[in-house]
Design a protein around this nucleic acid. Structure first.
Lengths: 206, 206
DNA sequence: GTCTATACTACGATAGAC
DNA sequence: GTCTATCGTAGTATAGAC
């Protein structure tokens, strides 16, 4: 599919060089087609950029489907199970942050986090909102004494532990004395995230 | 100082639009000078970019001087004091991540985290290395049972909690239902980070 | 040291053949 | 639906006046 090939190349290029820095000529060339195909299929460079946001949201939603199902129905879940579900979701997120595959669209999203455009709206309402809302609700079962606003803050901080593995990847690698995050490093990091998260959920905020 | 004015404008522009996206013309114009001044003072666009990295490293080092002093001499520090110092440093970092002033150079650094260039070397050896090494050593006093590699992993994860406030700023704001992180949100977030960090240091990893 | 003027390249968009 | 050709604009770098 030409459109898909263009989208995946574009996400890579937009992530690597930014919106202004990426060139439609190069995106087309790397996709094995002519630049005017972008105009034809997406209207303009900006149209392509927004289509990338939708594409990313869909892909993430697919990948997080198990986690979203986990929080879909909270009725009759006890506190211990809620804690365990939280740990699973955070670990799930950590795996994605470690995975090299997340590099391309992570950079795309990071850029939007700093100065959001229409593309951020599509990402947020396409997948982020449901993840944050769902996780906060689940967290409420694990930490029943926290106010709603505190739960939302805690959600973001908990994700932050895993996010750093992508957002500050180069520093993490340096700190661990490695070139990239292989299986050994992944095991170490996920284990620590689990221990930390358990302490947060059962110690400090219980 | 013309050079300083150019550097600060450049950091803003490089952060906002990326290396390729930022234009030397615009940087010069916003600094109130001609574009050829950049060539004269920094050699080229790339020279300006690298000079920005050095400038950022120096600025951060200034700002983190109290924290770096804190970890300079660990002799005769007891465990309780080490925990308290860790909490102070993490809070210090959180304040910087919340501060709007960090936005410009944070974007610059984030870009380098994803695909490091020579500029990352200058940032890392200019300030990051000392911060990570120092904090890991301090953490070793707070959590004496952890192996050195685990301490380094834990350091990065602990910073991650604060980093998310800058790296995923737009999502954090949405989650908290606010347009920006004001005093009220800052108080809430810092309090939670402190509680979480205390739980991590004394509960899960003690 | 800072300016103007200019050479050269690459960009996004569009028109029109097929 | 995909291509080639081309237009107008904006980029970096450089040369040379002052």
């Amino acid at each position: 599919m030409l459109q898909t090939r263009l989208l995946e190349t574009a996400i890579e290029q937009f992530g690597m060089h930014g919106f202004e820095g990426a060139s439609t000529r190069e995106i087309a060339r790397a996709s094995g087609t002519a630049m005017s195909s972008i105009t034809y299929h997406f209207g303009s460079k900006e149209g392509l950029y927004l289509a990338c946001a939708d594409y990313i949201a869909t892909r993430i939603r697919e990948r997080h489907a198990p986690a979203l199902d986990l929080v879909a129905d909270l009725s009759g879940i006890d506190r211990e199970a809620a804690v365990e579900h939280c740990l699973t979701i955070i670990d799930n997120f950590a795996v994605i942050m470690i995975d090299p595959e997340s590099a391309n669209w992570a950079r795309f999203i990071m850029r939007e986090q700093h100065s959001p455009t229409e593309a951020f709206e599509r990402l947020y309402h396409g997948v982020m909102k449901d993840m944050i809302d769902g996780f906060s609700a689940l967290l409420g079962r694990a930490c029943p004494d926290l106010a709603p606003q505190e739960l939302r803050a805690l959600s973001m901080l908990a994700f932050g532990q895993a996010l750093v593995l992508r957002a500050a990847r180069a520093s993490v690698c340096r700190a661990l004395g490695t070139d990239n995050l292989g299986e050994e490093e992944a095991r170490l990091l996920r284990a620590r995230i689990r221990v930390n998260s358990l302490a947060i959920l059962t110690g400090g905020n219980a």
